[in-house]
C-alpha cells in the first residue's frame, strides 16, 4: 500500500551538467532535516553519481537491480545516510541494466519505495531517450532544473513538452547557477527571460556558489552543514516551498544594492 501522501518527484533538465544530481542530493538532505522521510532514487543508470555526492559510495551493497530481480529485499538495498537517518538512497544498478529496464520496472520500484517514505526524489539522467523515459514513468510531479543559458533553457523546454504529454504535473522550475552581477549587467538571461519561455512556477533560484564544488568533492551536500552559504540557503528554501511553506522569492538581479548597481540599472532603463 502506497501512502496517499507520498510524493514522487522527478528532477530533470534535459541538458547535462546543470545541477540535477546536486539539487537531488541537497534537496534530499534538506527535506530529511525538516523531518520528512525522504528517499532519493538514482535513475541515472548509465552514469550514476548520486551516491558520490551523498558520500555513500562505499556503503552500497545491493542496488535497484537486485531488488528488481528479487535477490534481495528493498530494505537491504536502501542506504541510510549517516548523519540524516531520515534520508535513504536507492542506488542504481550497473549500466547494463539500461538494456532491459522497462518503465514498468521503474514504476514498480518507485511504488515499493513510496510505501515507506513521504518524498521520493528521482534523479533523472540527462537527455530525453530511454533512460529519461524510464525515470519519468515513476514520477507524478517534476522539478525542472535549468541555468540561465540559451541551450539549457531550450532543452528544458523540450523536456517540459514531454512531461506535459505524459501528464506529469505540477511541473516547477529551479533556476540554478544564477550570477546576479551578470544578470544586472544583462550579460546573462534574466529570470524573466527564462520564466517567459518556460512558463512554469519558479520554485527556487540558486546562486552560483564555489562551495558547491567543494561539497561535491567531499561527498557532503551543502545543506548538511550549518554554514549559510548562498546556495545552501537556496536549497533549504526550495525544500520549504516544496513542503507548502510560503517563502518569498527574491530576484537577485533586482535586489542588488549600492551606487554602482543603481547607476548601472539607470543606464539600462529606457527613459524615452
Amino acid at each position: 500500500m502506497t501512502a496517499p501522501s507520498s510524493r514522487f518527484i522527478l528532477i530533470c533538465s534535459g541538458k547535462g551538467g546543470v545541477g540535477k544530481t546536486t539539487l537531488t542530493a541537497n534537496l534530499g538532505i534538506a527535506l530529511a532535516r525538516q523531518g520528512a522521510r525522504t528517499a532519493v532514487l538514482d535513475a541515472d543508470f548509465g552514469l550514476r553519481n548520486l551516491d558520490l555526492l551523498l558520500g555513500l559510495e562505499n556503503r552500497i551493497v545491493y542496488t535497484a537491480q537486485e531488488v528488481l530481480a528479487g535477490s534481495c529485499r528493498l530494505e537491504q538495498a536502501l542506504v541510510k545516510h549517516k548523519q540524516q537517518p531520515n534520508l535513504a538512497l536507492l542506488p542504481a544498478g550497473n549500466p547494463r541494466m539500461l538494456e532491459w529496464l522497462k518503465p514498468e520496472d521503474m514504476r514498480r520500484i518507485a511504488a515499493m519505495v513510496g510505501e515507506q517514505f513521504d518524498y521520493v526524489l528521482i534523479d533523472a539522467p540527462a537527455g530525453i531517450e530511454g533512460g529519461f523515459r524510464n525515470a519519468m514513468a515513476a514520477a507524478r510531479e517534476a522539478i525542472v532544473v535549468t541555468t540561465p543559458e540559451v541551450s539549457a533553457v531550450r532543452d528544458a523546454d523540450r523536456v517540459i513538452g514531454l512531461l506535459n504529454s505524459e501528464g506529469v504535473k505540477p511541473i516547477q522550475l529551479v533556476l540554478n547557477r544564477v550570477r546576479p552581477k551578470m544578470m544586472a549587467s544583462q550579460e546573462m538571461l534574466a529570470v524573466d527571460d527564462v520564466t517567459d519561455i518556460l512558463a512554469l512556477p519558479l520554485l527556487g533560484l540558486v546562486l552560483e556558489d564555489e562551495q558547491v564544488i567543494v561539497s561535491t568533492n567531499r561527498g557532503e551536500p551543502l545543506t548538511l552543514g550549518e554554514g549559510g552559504s548562498p546556495a545552501a540557503r537556496a536549497y533549504i528554501n526550495v525544500a520549504r516551498r516544496l513542503r507548502g511553506e510560503d517563502v518569498p522569492l527574491i530576484d537577485p538581479s533586482k535586489e542588488r544594492q549600492g551606487l554602482r548597481a543603481r547607476i548601472g540599472r539607470l543606464m539600462h532603463t529606457k527613459i524615452f
Binding site: 531550450r154 532543452d155 523546454d157 523540450r158 517540459i160 513538452g161 519561455i197 512558463a199
Partner: peptide, 24 residues
C-alpha cells in the same frame, strides 16, 4: 496550448495556436 521546443505541428489548412510557439 504552447508548442515547446521539438514540437512540430503541420496542418492542411490554416492553424490558430492559442499559446506561444517557443524557440525550437
Amino acid at each position: 496550448g504552447t508548442l515547446r521546443a521539438g514540437d512540430h505541428l503541420e496542418v492542411e489548412g490554416s492553424v490558430l495556436v492559442l499559446g506561444d510557439v517557443n524557440p525550437g
